[in-house]
């Protein structure tokens, strides 16, 4: 059995979190609150050291790049939420984030999820699996038609589409469950090897 205090702390936390499988209990509550609290503190430090200092303080106060006053000002507006009278000002940085987020992601999504997918569907290799794939792409796309009632040909096509979607989900489910099982095995190995020392 391990004599390393770090291993013992990790074991108590692991058993505490696993105890949730039985029912909610004080040990799980302790582990949960510790986890949430520590991760919150960690992220505060992370944002301060990786965000505020290198992306605002250094450019503004050391490199004297006053362009950074604009994002700095927008960020400070966020704190207006603490004063009821001026709370509406916090909507400005939020609107900026929403607008910039949409503007940046739309071209990227067009490229990665539409144009690249269309290109990948066109191939000069005419095989059975290629035909199955093309039918699947067209049928699945037809399922996501919202402005027309699914009847007639569209009903048949979208019906085939949902079959393809479910087959895809089944494959993904099995694959991911296997990955999760390997995580569980990793934890079990930690308990049996690093803590109890009963396996090599």
């Amino acid at each position: 059995m391990s004599t390393n205090p770090g291993v013992w702390v990790a074991v108590i936390m692991t058993i505490g979190i696993f105890s949730f499988l039985y029912k909610d209990n004080p040990l799980y509550k302790f582990c949960e609150h510790l986890f949430v609290g520590i991760s919150l503190g960690y992220y505060v430090a992370l944002y301060w050291n990786n965000g505020v200092i290198p992306k605002l303080y250094i450019p503004l106060f050391r490199q004297h790049n006053y362009f950074y006053l604009i994002p700095g000002f927008l960020g400070i507006l966020y704190f207006s939420r603490f004063v009821r009278k001026y709370a509406y000002l916090s909507r400005w940085p939020m609107a900026f984030v929403l607008g910039a987020g949409s503007g940046l992601s739309i071209p990227a999504i067009l490229q990665a999820r539409i144009i690249a997918q269309m290109r990948g569907t066109m191939s000069d290799t005419f095989t059975v699996s290629y035909v199955v794939m093309v039918i699947g792409v067209l049928a699945t796309l037809s399922y996501f038609f919202f402005s027309r009632e699914h009847k007639g040909f569209l009903k048949i096509a979208s019906g085939i589409g949902i079959v393809y979607i479910m087959v895809g989900f089944g494959a993904t489910f099995g694959y991911t469950v296997m990955a999760r099982v390997s995580l569980l095995i990793g934890r079990a190995q930690f308990l049996l090897r690093d803590w109890l020392g009963i396996i090599d």
């Binding site: 979190i17 582990c31 949960e32 986890f35 949430v36 520590i38 991760s39 919150l40 960690y42 992220y43």
Partner: peptide, 10 residues
């Protein structure tokens, strides 16, 4: 919390 599994636990 920003942490993925910390959030899940919470």
């Amino acid at each position: 919390t920003d942490d993925q599994f910390g959030y899940a636990a919470g």
